[in-house]
Design a protein around this nucleic acid. Sequence first.
RNA 1: GGUCCGCUAGCUCAGCUGGAUAGAGCAACUGCCUUCUAAGCAGUAGGUCUUAGGUUCGAAUCCUAAGCGGAUCACCA
Length: 589
Amino acid sequence: MKLEALIIAGVQEAMRNLYGQELGLESIALNETKKEFVGDITVVVFPLTKFSRLGPEQTAEAIGTYLVKSIEYISAFNVVKGFLNLQIANSYWLSFFKAEHNNLEFGKGEKKRKVVLEYCGPNTNKPLHLGHIRNMLLGYSTANLLSFAGNDVHKVNIYNDRGIAICKSMLAWKLFGAGATPESSGLKGDHFVGKFYVEFDKHYKAEVQALVEQGLSKEVAEKQAPLIVKAQEMLVQWEQGDKEVLALWNKMNSWCYEGFEETFKALGVDFEKHYKESDFYLQGKSLVDEGLKKNFFYKKEDGSVWVDLEDKGLDHKLLLRGDGTSVYITQDMGVAEARYQDYQFDESIYVVASEQDYHFKVLQLVLEKLEKPYAEGIYHLSYGLVNLPNGRMKSREGTVVDADDLIAEMIATAEKHTKELGKIDDFTPEEAQALYKTLAMGALKYFMLKVSPKRSMIFNPEESIEFQGDTGPFIQFNYVRIQSLLRKQTLAQLQLDGIEINEDEKDLIKDLYKFPALIQGAAANYDISELVSYCYSLAKNYSKFYANNAILVDTTEDLKNFRLLLSRWVAEVLKSSFGILGIEMPNRM
RNA sequence: GGUCCGCUAGCUCAGCUGGAUAGAGCAACUGCCUUCUAAGCAGUAGGUCUUAGGUUCGAAUCCUAAGCGGAUCACCA
């Protein structure tokens, strides 16, 4: 039985035998004992006093005495105010160490649910930016976390590959592109397409400006500018299946996909399947028809279709335009349906920014109205926006932090730091380059993932991402030191007789002990940042241990071997945790 | 205006379903490389946890208001 469960049962038993009281689990609170007190686990006695009808100290004394007698692994206790601090015998930690230190599956959970996790969701009209980076890192790592915790996870992407925005890029290319291609211009595909999106905006603004000068109101001008009218015509042609438009659309989208693939590769994220909205908006429409037939939805005189969500505290929501064309949510309904047909999932997770909280609430409620069995399993993993120090990234003001640029900058910074330290002079250029990338991505990913997903975060492009302190490279550094130790010494069979563990060693074993529960907790909360914090705490404790304790020299063979095995286990847990985060470990740095 | 989210050290963030004297990193200042990688270790300084009430043995944490900031409420996606 787990330590915590053992103690709770022990306290229940104590309360029964000492005071004749039957306590539920909820009235027994356990905490980790704070550093400044002696002990490992603390029972908070205050809630128990009303059952014991004695003061907190007296109650704590009595329970402590009882537990030391009844539970083998509790070696001693002390009472501070209403806190009963229990000391766990070293033999407990050592037997745990012995049992698990060679377990390659340590921390992995039992098989549970089938989960589909959607992330990324780019528009195919411009390159990926910092917001997408947060999305991709969260999506990829959360999928790994859920998988490690025991779920059968399938990662999918959704391409928002249709709509007016794409038409803008297409139109601009047609008008101003002069037949250029990514190859001919030497640009990455998505950047090439994005260039025309910007180009459109530039010419469109000029047109609007000209119309305003002719005396039109800004509002009217924005609707009547020839470019926007043409773009809208193009959208209609697209829906009608115009061959020429479709050909152009396919060509430009494929340029985007090529560009995206490169970025996915650089970031180390992948997908089992890419859904395209263009493939499913019709299916969404048929779902709307289905809802109409069953009277879950209603049609207005102009032909638009709505759903009444007032009973759920929301308002009426449009599902289909008066002209019969689909809106954003129509497509999402179609994709949701298709995804269930594809996977029969227990849970479908959408990693999408918090600005779409309302949208996903509506989506889920609409699917519930339709009595879809999978509606209940939908979970919106909402994350906060990435802001700049002076607010939101704005493409108009050119403050968007481009994903590819940022990755390149990080690699350059990693190279600079590494060269300053001069520890890898014997590396080949290829090895060095690989290391820069590993460290750069370690720093970037750790930086993005250590913030709780829900929270919006601030990114300051003026300050480069740290490589010291609470960072990815710090964890990698500790891993590398352990690898260096292991290269110098071969391991022998564990021999624990006569090993007296000290505080530093015990802290590490306790950290390792927490790992499986940490994984389950983080997975239950969909919170990858909990794993990041755990890694930092483990690595920090290791760093302290490393500084205070000789491992290879001045030790007996058994002690050396124990410390090496302990180090190796720490390294393994760090490595598998970083694997979940999507960060590689170098062997030297 | 309705709804939702946030506010913790100069900056960036932890602080799990209430528990002991609120923690890290960066920045500042002090020590420590002839021990296994100093991208490190040890230490100093830095806080009215936005404010006001409430709940209770106990509140950064829960409740109610207020302030400030953000998001959202489109026949945009």
